[in-house]
Amino acid sequence: MEYTHLGRTGLKVSRLCLGTMNFGPYTSESDSFRIMNRALELGINFFDTANVYGGEKGVGATEQIIGKWLLEDKSRRHKIVLATKVYGKTGEGPNDSKLSAYHIRKACEDSLKRLQTDHIDLYQMHHIDRETPWEEIFQAMEQLVREGKIIYVGSSNFAAWNLAEAFYKAKERNFLGIVSEQSIYNLRNRNIELEVIPACKAFGIGLIPWSPLGGGILCGVLKEIKEGRRTREPLQKSVEKLRPQIEAYEKLCKEIGNEPSSVALAWVLSNPVVTAPIIGPRTLEQLEENVKSLELKLSDDVLKKLDEIWPGPGNQAPEAYAW
């Protein structure tokens, strides 16, 4: 396993991050345990979840599964970098969502209980809150750091200007501030190349791409699949819309002798700003397949062909659209 620093911090994390959104709604507790056990064996030390994950099992169900796994063997807690998120709706009350100091404190306490731990290594804002001032947000986060309940603060789904504003607001307070950003990033969706990636590079913010496989589009979707997300109607509609590109992509993957999922992950990993893409295996077999991407180094010729099939903006802003 390869390791790298999380943004500008001294913390080292694996080049793949284990996403757990499937744990509970699509992957049983016992199978989730097996996936986490194998991830540790493979050297993956970066685990990501969110307080709202759980699907039909209910808010917090995924965190509870991870908590049971940690409780089963308490030595596991110090072998992983545990990340979760705050923002989403956790109840019916008017203060049961977003990033008020009130909600941040309560959401953190609830996550700690579900995760059966006394601290969260990376506490991430799941979305930008346009109604709460940074002074309030960072005051709440600083308090959690002082109490030893969280160590680092991260963000998710932030625009580049949100990251810039947060960076300087934290600097005014002599606070470390945001050290990582989770954004959607894959061959199919390259929007963050315009501004978010340049911002992450400028501010020393680690990029943790979510949906690196394009929601299933980039992992051999033309093969007959009988279960999992790739069988859902919305994805099948996207397949028909993108069929020419998908066919060209899967043909290229076959020519170079690699699975589409491995190529998609290797492409994301080839970006020097990327810390670790989030893989969200539903099965143990998917985990094993995802890890193979670390051994794959794409040639310049292959990268050029991928750009032709899945073109990005062409450059960062404003060069992408102006002289």
Results as ranks from 00 to 15, higher is better:
R15F: 11
T62M: 08
R34W: 04
P25G: 11
K254C: 14
L213E: 04
P260E: 09
A107G: 01
T84F: 04
L269I: 07
P277F: 00
A140G: 09
S111H: 02
D73H: 10
L115I: 11
A202D: 11
Y123C: 01
N189R: 07
E224G: 08
E308G: 14
Y321H: 15
L40N: 05
S270H: 14
E240H: 10
E131P: 03
K305H: 11
N95Q: 05
A107P: 01
F46S: 07
L70A: 03
L99V: 07
L294N: 02
L218P: 01
Y53R: 06
L42V: 03
S238V: 06
L287G: 02
E240L: 10
C219H: 01
G216S: 09
E288K: 13
L70R: 03
I150L: 02
E195V: 13
L296G: 03
A317F: 14
Q245C: 05
G314D: 12
P281Q: 15
R34H: 11
T275Q: 02
I151Y: 13
G88L: 05
R76H: 06
E136Q: 14
I279V: 15
K251W: 05
L82C: 05
E255N: 10
I178M: 09
R114H: 08
R282E: 15
I150M: 02
I35D: 00
I278F: 00
R230G: 08
E135Q: 09
I35K: 02
R243S: 08
G257A: 12
I279R: 01
K57M: 03
L194H: 01
V302A: 09
M141C: 12
K169D: 04
E255S: 14
F167H: 13
W267M: 05
K226G: 11
D73Y: 07
L222V: 10
